[in-house]
Design a protein around this nucleic acid. Structure first.
Length: 881
RNA sequence: GGGCACAUAGCUCAGUGGUAGAGCAUCACCUUCACACGGUGGGGGUCGCAGGUUCGAACCCUGCUGUGCCCACCA
């Protein structure tokens, strides 16, 4: 006997262990089934499951479970990411608590500490994935810094280098002075602020009374100025071009150059050029061969290229000092507020400095060509399609990708330098040493590049590195390209684009055929969740409180395409109730000895009621399947919910009650078997979304295998339109009677008579055939055909299709109230009629609209008209009372 | 500055040319022998605004208003 209420916490752990131990999650490369593969977007190894994870992994697990049931050989590849910057920061913060910096420890010791941290907290996220029910093929779990993947990353880099797609260059990059590393454009966050524009005079060399006024938002960079640019056409400065001006404070002479960058309409039309600290100025500097003076050290303090009294100051301190010094020199003109955006590091939160350094770059523009083409020609598609525009937009404007990071945690770059700076790009030190020995003609000591790769450089090859690449494994051949990548839009650029470029380059095929982009999870008010706002919803707390199934169902039900998912606890509660409802339905079936019969043939059932529910089951299964095939998870969830609750529980089980308790043994047996069969299929169709309660209930049934491994059945052959029409009519009739009863204020327990007027042969037959069902559900003493006009005397009436439902209630009817009610009904019907007539009298509508639509409207008009007559008759009768 | 979304019931959202929907909330009645985490029945919407296309528009087109996001620029 099932417990009175379902206790999710108790069963979830047990069921998951059972699945995992049984090997139900394992892929079978040797099988002859069609493969289906999803690569998990590897979460940060030291991360914690947040609500966004819960959504993306629920979706993936639903797809995986559905495809597994559909008979595919499924691989859901698990793994975690070393997440270079994020992880290094966490460990540095921990060390800082003891007053230690990573530099105190040294690189080797520090990395040891990170591995220790990983060993300690690295299992957290995979435990949480299990809690969520994720059916990942765990024995295949990979880590972006495990031995195989390290080898793959080295090969990736060396191959790209030898193909000329990787190069080393001294360039202006986004420099994070807190983390002391270069970061990519994508890791820079632009924040809007109101800054200040300052105007200074630069005195013209040898002409003490002449000066040029420049405008700047960064006065402190003046020590790095190497020119002042004006427009060649600017009349104000034409004669100054070629002359020098003197930088205030440091009194260095720099030339005035003509350059297109200077816009006569902005500022004063004269702009100071600081090539080493501004991306635009850098381009100007290159055009005019200007020196590039770096005035900052790696922590954004002023360096030895600035006057002594400035050295060691922060940029903010330097700015104040420059301002007061310039004012003291009498060269200050004015200042005004200036709205502007300032770059911040998305991890460190500090202001990013453009800084001139040597870095490794991947020739992304070249790799992007094919990556654009595959989406254009449909070899890869985005769902929803609208994201393709975003993808194109970015790919067509892609910049070289800086892949080196001045961090310690990550894949150290496989480049070795000789004493003279000559370098050797090889997969390991032995190969590099051999090359170096050859090159120098003797043994020399090599030093490996101190930098590591951008994390995305390793996750970019995730779809094939996890399958064994560069070895040509069976798995690689079988599961690449994968079927779908599921992710939120925020990492299309970071990750998706890189995987496509690298997948196409190394595997000569797309990494996945479909990219499904789901919504971001927001709070109830639609705000982005963030720790600082304190509106973070912890999925695990919800899971503990309401059960994982309720959480998963909520996320699926809200995962409509292209929308944000707003998480509200009341929704979770509502779906927890649904889980309970299923549980109780199963309990009810159990109480009535509804046992699944092996070899039960739905085609053999005789009762129309049973044919009806079997047909409805078939339709529901197909709805769920279609929705899953189209990534419409909300529709899949809704179809299962409506069928299980709205059809099976609300109607079928109620209909079945008298049969369960009836005397007809064969009817009883058939109904019991049917109920068990339908319940099993409800468990089946809900399993991908709510795996735990369904498996638990399945395990109590008469089954040899677990639900997770049970094939999804196509039940299309059991659709029975006749049965559906019959019972749907009964359902509608009962609804009409119930509604009328309530309006007439008849106590729910009171049994009354019902007469049906105006029924045709089919309806008359149904009334007889389903008499017991109708009486039971509508709480009637009798349900019969009306044969004579007097039946309608003192009866309350409601129109149902072309029939009239009569409840003889002599003495109970409040004439005034009933008149009002009928008039309201009449009004509604007349409104419908005038609308339909207007349409049908329109020549253009009748001739141009599809036949089916026109015919449909005619039927509705006829129904409404017969309804009007019936209501009018009822009104006339009331007058006689 | 360029681009992409979005605006439907009190709330959260489905609905892409043919009778405006769901869940939650709300109201009334019901402790009926699976379930009060329940049952039954209600109420509630000029589908952001203005035009246009169409026999017919929440849906397609144009403009407007508002909201969100992305990218770029910013002396």
């Amino acid at each position: 006997m099932l417990e009175k209420t379902y206790n999710p916490a108790e069963v979830e752990t047990n069921i998951y262990e059972k699945w995992e131990k049984s090997g139900a999650f394992a892929c079978h490369p040797e099988s002859d089934k069609d493969p289906y593969c999803i690569m998990i977007p590897p979460p940060n190894v030291t991360g914690n499951l947040h609500i966004g994870h819960a959504l993306t992994f629920t979706i993936q697990d639903s797809l995986i479970r559905y495809q597994r049931m559909k008979g595919k050989d499924v691989l859901w590849q698990p793994g975690t990411d070393h997440a270079g910057i994020a992880t290094q920061m966490v460990v540095e913060r921990l060390l800082a608590k003891d007053g230690i910096s990573r530099h105190d420890l040294g690189r080797e010791k520090f990395i040891e500490k990170v591995w220790e941290w990983k060993a300690k907290s690295g299992g957290q996220i995979t435990k949480q994935l299990r809690r969520l029910g994720a059916s990942l093929d765990w024995p295949r779990e990979r880590f972006t810094m495990d031995e195989g993947l390290c080898r793959a990353v080295r090969q990736e880099f060396v191959t790209l280098y030898k193909e000329g797609l990787v190069y080393r260059a001294k360039r202006l990059v986004n420099w994070d002075p807190k983390l002391e590393t270069a970061i990519s454009d994508l890791e820079v966050e632009q924040r809007e602020t109101v800054g200040t524009m300052w105007y200074f005079n630069y005195v013209v060399e040898n002409e003490p009374n002449r000066f040029i006024t420049i405008a700047t938002t960064r006065p402190e960079t003046l020590f790095g100025d190497t020119a002042v640019a004006v427009s060649a056409d600017d009349e104000r400065y034409k004669d100054l071009i070629g002359k020098n001006v003197i930088i205030p404070i440091c009194n260095r002479a720099i030339p005035i150059v003509a350059d297109e960058h200077a816009d006569p309409t902005k500022g004063t039309g004269a702009v100071k050029i600081t090539p080493a600290h501004d991306f635009n100025d850098y381009e100007v500097g290159k055009r005019h061969n200007l020196p590039m003076i770096n005035i900052l050290d790696s922590t954004a303090h002023l360096n030895e290229n600035t006057p002594k009294e400035y050295q060691g100051l922060t940029t903010a301190e330097a700015r104040e000092k420059v301002l007061s010094d310039v004012k003291a020199l009498g060269l200050y003109v004015k200042e005004e507020p200036n709205p502007m955006t300032i770059p911040y590091g998305d991890r460190s939160g500090v202001v990013i400095e453009p800084w001139l350094t040597d870095q490794w770059f991947v020739d992304a523009p070249k790799l992007a060509v094919e990556a654009i083409k595959v989406v254009e020609d449909g070899r890869m598609e985005f769902v929803p399609k609208t994201w393709e525009k975003t993808y194109f937009e970015w790919m067509r404007n892609i910049q070289p990708w800086c892949v080196s990071r001045q961090l310690w945690w990550g894949h150290q770059i496989p480049v070795w330098y000789g004493p003279d700076g000559h370098y050797f790009v090889e997969e390991n030190v032995e190969l590099a040493q051999a090359e170096a020995d050859k090159y120098y003609g003797k043994h020399v000591d090599l030093v490996q590049d101190q930098d590591v790769f951008d994390t995305w450089f390793s996750s970019g090859i995730w779809p094939f590195s996890t399958l064994g690449w560069p070895d040509q494994t069976e798995e690689l051949k079988r599961y690449y390209p994968t079927n779908v990548l599921v992710t939120a839009f925020d990492i299309i650029f970071f990750w998706v684009a890189r995987m496509v470029m690298l997948g196409l380059h190394f595997m000569h095929d797309v990494p996945f055929k479909t990219v499904y982009i789901h919504a971001l999870v927001r709070d109830e008010q639609g705000r982005k969740m963030s720790k600082s706002k304190g509106n973070v919803v912890d999925p695990l707390i919800l899971a503990d409180k309401y059960g994982v199934d309720a959480l998963r169902f909520t996320l699926s039900a809200m995962a409509a395409q292209g929308r944000d998912v707003c998480m509200s606890e009341s929704r979770v509660e509502g779906y927890r109730n649904f889980v309970t409802k299923i549980w109780n339905a199963a309990r009810f079936c159990e109480m009535n000895q509804c046992v699944a019969i092996k070899g039960f043939n739905p085609k053999s059932v005789k009762e129309q009621l049973n044919k009806w529910i079997i047909s409805k089951t078939s339709v529901a299964m197909n709805k769920v399947a279609t929705a899953m095939d189209e990534y419409k998870f909300n529709e899949a969830a809704e179809a299962g919910y409506q069928f299980a609750w709205g059809t099976f529980c609300d109607w079928y089980l109620e209909f079945a009650k008298p049969l369960f308790n009836g005397d007809d043994e064969s009817k009883k047996a058939e109904t019991r078997a049917t109920a068990a069969w339908v319940l099993d299929h409800i468990l089946m169709m809900l399993h991908p979304i709510m795996p735990f309660v369904t498996e638990e209930l399945w395990s109590k049934g008469n089954h040899e295998q677990m639900l997770i491994s049970t094939p999804w059945e196509d039940l299309s052959e059991f659709v029975d339109e006749k049965a559906e029409a019959d019972l749907d009519w009964v359902v509608g009739l009962v609804g009409a009677i119930r509604s009328l009863r309530t309006e007439m204020n008849i106590a729910p327990g009171t049994k009354i008579q019902m007469l049906l007027a105006g029924a045709n042969d089919v309806e008359a037959k149904r009334l007889v055939q389903f008499n017991t069902l109708i009486k039971t559900l509508a709480r009637l003493e009798s349900a019969e055909l009306s044969t004579k006009a007097e039946d309608a005397k003192s009866a309350a009436q409601v129109v149902y299709g072309t029939t009239a439902v009569l409840l003889p209630l002599a003495g109970f009817i409040d004439v005034a109230k009933e008149t009002e009610r009928l008039n309201k009904e009449l009004e509604g019907l007349n409104k419908v009629i005038s609308g339909l007539e207007g349409r049908l009298n329109n020549e253009a509508f009748v001739s141009k609209a599809p036949e089916k639509v026109v015919a449909d409207q005619r039927v509705r008009l006829a129904e409404a008209k017969s309804g009007v007559i019936k209501v009018q008759e009822a009104l006339a009768r009331l007058k006689d009372l």
